[in-house]
């Protein structure tokens, strides 16, 4: 029995030690705090305290082109693929809790706030354990986010994948958190358009309550809710109008609705996500509207950032 246990420890221990060394070297040499690292965004969110935060789902990540809207290094796109409406309310709560005045721009998709998933547990590897995001994670995910060097267990492929992507970054536009595929659009994805919401979507009372509670704690950050363009409208506008109506009286909030914009297929990568061309057009529209709102004193822009002036 003892001989067997020693044998198991030898095989498992050697394998684990070797894989930890490989992962650690890989991360230290190639990936340390680089944007293509899958856990970079949330790590930055808590480390950097940017002045302008873009939050939301993959639609946010692939639509808000930060460099087209603002100058400088104080704005960042924290939209994350696969998180739907699940993640951003938690990030919003953590953002309004700190003392720093910020401009927070959020893409809201017509779904309940519990729609969406943690998606990729690697996102959360460096999230502080006292944060709202961490405490909202499933127990199984929290258990799997371990301290160094255990945190690499099961994460190597993601490290290698992102490492290779970074090394040969030829398939996407990747800048300040914005990540847009620059490959030709995929018609197959448009086949899926029937999955788009085709009914009138109503804001759930619980969701509004959660949002209101978060926003009531806010006494300095400007929160802008943005309805991104959509390839097929189908209920998106009704949803957003309702959200706007219900949050009307809440201080420091502002709403921008891009329903009906950019509906031409040439602006889309698939039925949900803009392509680079579409995202550029949209970001210019957003810059224009934010500038107008700021000039009219409807929103406050942090002093550390300026709008880009080029057309």
């Amino acid at each position: 029995m003892r001989k067997f246990l020693i044998y198991v420890l030898f095989i498992a221990g050697s394998s684990w030690a070797l894989s930890s060394v490989i992962a650690w070297s890989f991360e230290t040499l190639f990936l340390a705090k680089t944007e293509s690292q899958v856990n970079y965004k949330l790590s930055r969110f808590y480390d950097f305290n940017d002045d302008v935060l873009f939050l939301g789902s993959s639609r946010a990540e692939q639509s808000f082109m930060v460099d087209t809207i603002f100058k400088g290094d104080h704005a960042y796109n924290y939209g994350l693929v696969g998180t739907g409406n699940w993640l951003w309310p938690k990030l919003l709560e953590d953002a309004v809790a700190n003392d720093k005045p910020e401009l927070i721009l959020i893409n809201v998709d017509p779904d309940s706030l519990d729609h969406g998933t943690e998606w990729n547990m690697s996102y959360y590897l460096d999230v502080p354990h006292h944060s709202t995001v961490f405490s909202a994670l499933k127990f199984t995910t929290r258990r799997r986010i371990r301290f160094f060097p255990f945190k690499y267990f099961g994460q190597y492929i993601e490290l290698f994948r992102t490492g290779i992507k970074q090394w040969k970054n030829s398939t996407s536009y990747d800048n300040k958190g914005t990540n847009i595929s620059i490959k030709p659009p995929n018609p197959a994805s448009f086949f899926n358009q029937d999955m788009a919401k085709d009914s009138v979507l109503l804001c759930k009372e619980d969701d509004l309550q959660i949002l209101s509670e978060i926003l009531l704690k806010n006494n300095q950050d400007m929160v802008v809710f943005i309805k991104l363009p959509s390839y097929q409208e189908k209920g998106y506008k009704i949803f957003f109008n309702q959200l706007e109506h219900r949050l009307e009286g809440v201080a420091f909030t502002y709403f921008l609705d891009y329903t009906g914009e950019l509906s031409n297929k040439s602006n889309w990568n698939d039925h949900l996500h803009l392509n680079l061309d579409g995202a550029t057009k949209f970001s210019k529209m957003l810059r224009r509207d934010l500038q107008l709102a700021a000039d009219s004193n409807l929103i406050h822009i942090p002093s550390s950032v300026q709008f880009h002036s080029f057309n």
């Binding site: 095989i11 394998s15 547990m121 190597y156 492929i157 290698f160």
Partner: peptide
């Protein structure tokens, strides 16, 4: 045999997500 097993387990741990 041991090298093979360690290698297989190394790859398995890489993909265990």
């Amino acid at each position: 045999q041991n090298v093979l097993l360690i290698g297989l387990l190394l790859f398995t741990s890489m993909f265990l997500t």
